[in-house]
Design a binder for these strands. Structure first.
Lengths: 107, 107
DNA sequence: CAATATACCTCGCCTGTCAAGGTATATTAT
DNA sequence: ATAATATACCTTGACAGGCGAGGTATATTG
């Protein structure tokens, strides 16, 4: 595992929630967005992505539905819930604090 | 596991190396330093600490020796190596980049 | 003399990541 | 025509770091 992956570990769920704040989306799209946003520096691996979806759904932070594509491959859409939004904002706050903490600890 | 632990995951080794930059130290002391530095927000768990020491030693980033305490409990001291310093600086750079990336991904 | 502090350590579980594999449809290149 | 690539979904099993729970020994404080 690369160091970058290790640093990113644990942020996956919040990153996904962040992408659902403004509109519903689906796995493939979210992954593409992330790659684009990071100039292809970071690619969320599919297995990681889908296991995160399962956890988020289980926790009630997202709900899912199938798109009604008439052409092309089917898409499973994800929507953030109110709990999900709360979770996201809590996490973001925690991230701000953690950032300062790590900066302090790395001198 | 708390969210904080998950965010901190992977930084343990660098945090330890950081504490060894200026002087050698030992497990108990390093742990205390970390707690103090973070106003008791973050406590590196002992099991985590010692398994990190093993990894760091294995990797050649630290070397260890027993202190010559005449009173009190014995102390195992840790010293950072040149490789350890290189590793630390590389990690710190990576952290700066990762920080920006996560900020971007969390909008 | 019990409790707390200092100081070390190990075992085994838990959880998130991911390599490797799979399915199906649509488009583009040869 | 058909091979290759892109879109889109998914599961399994291994791996690694964190840590709860347990242990040892010495010194100090109430």
């Amino acid at each position: 595992m690369s160091i970058t992956s290790d640093i990113l570990r644990g942020h996956t769920e919040a990153i996904i929630l962040s992408h659902l704040l403004d509109q519903d989306s689906y796995g493939y799209q979210i992954n593409k967005d992330i790659m684009k946003k990071t100039n292809n520096t970071y690619e969320l691996k599919e297995a990681t992505l889908y296991s995160a979806f399962r956890r988020l759904e289980q926790a009630g932070y997202i709900r899912t539905y199938w798109g009604d594509e008439t052409v092309g491959a089917r898409r499973r859409y994800y929507a953030i819930t109110e709990d999900g939004r709360r979770m996201y904002h809590g996490y973001k706050k925690e991230w701000q604090e953690a950032k300062e903490m790590i900066d302090k600890l790395l001198k």
